[in-house]
Amino acid sequence: MNELHGAGVALVTPFNADGTVDFESLAQLIDYQINAGMNYLVSLGTTGEVATLSKEERKHIWDFTVKQVNARVPLVAGIGGNNTAEIVDQIKNFDPTGFCAILSVSPYYNKPVQEGIYQHYKAIAEASPLPIILYNVPGRTGSNMTPETTVRLARDFKNIVATKEASGSFAQFNAILRDKPADFLLISGDDPITLPMMALGAVGLISVVGNAYPAKVAELVALCAKGNYTAARTIHNELLEITDLCFVEGNPCGVKYILQEQGIGQDHVRLPLIPVSAKTQAAIQAEMQKIH
Score class of each variant (00 low, 15 high):
Asn2Phe: 10
Asn2Leu: 14
Glu3Gln: 15
Ala17Ser: 15
Asp22Tyr: 10
Gly37Pro: 07
Leu44Val: 02
Glu49Met: 07
Ala51Gln: 13
Thr65Trp: 04
Gln68Phe: 04
Gln68Cys: 07
Asn70Val: 07
Pro74Ala: 04
Ala77Ser: 12
Gly78Thr: 01
Gly80Gln: 08
Gly81His: 12
Asn83Leu: 14
Asn83Ser: 14
Ala85Asn: 13
Pro96Asn: 02
Thr97Cys: 07
Thr97Met: 05
Lys111Ala: 12
Lys111Ile: 12
Val113Thr: 13
Glu115Thr: 13
Tyr121Phe: 15
Lys122Asn: 11
Ser128Arg: 10
Ser128Gly: 09
Leu130Met: 09
Pro131Asp: 10
Val137Gln: 02
Val137Cys: 06
Gly142Trp: 07
Pro147Val: 04
Thr149His: 02
Arg152Gln: 12
Ile160Gly: 01
Thr163Phe: 04
Lys164Gly: 03
Lys164Val: 05
Ser169Cys: 14
Phe173Lys: 04
Asn174His: 13
Ala175His: 00
Arg178Ser: 06
Lys180Cys: 09
Ile187Trp: 02
Ile187Ala: 03
Ser188Asp: 00
Ser188Asn: 06
Thr194Leu: 11
Ala202Arg: 00
Ala202Val: 08
Gly204His: 05
Ser207Tyr: 03
Ser207Gly: 09
Gly210Asp: 06
Lys216Leu: 14
Thr230His: 12
His236Lys: 11
Cys246Ser: 10
Gly250Thr: 08
Tyr257Thr: 00
Ile258Thr: 02
Gln260Gly: 07
Asp267Glu: 13
Ile274Gln: 15
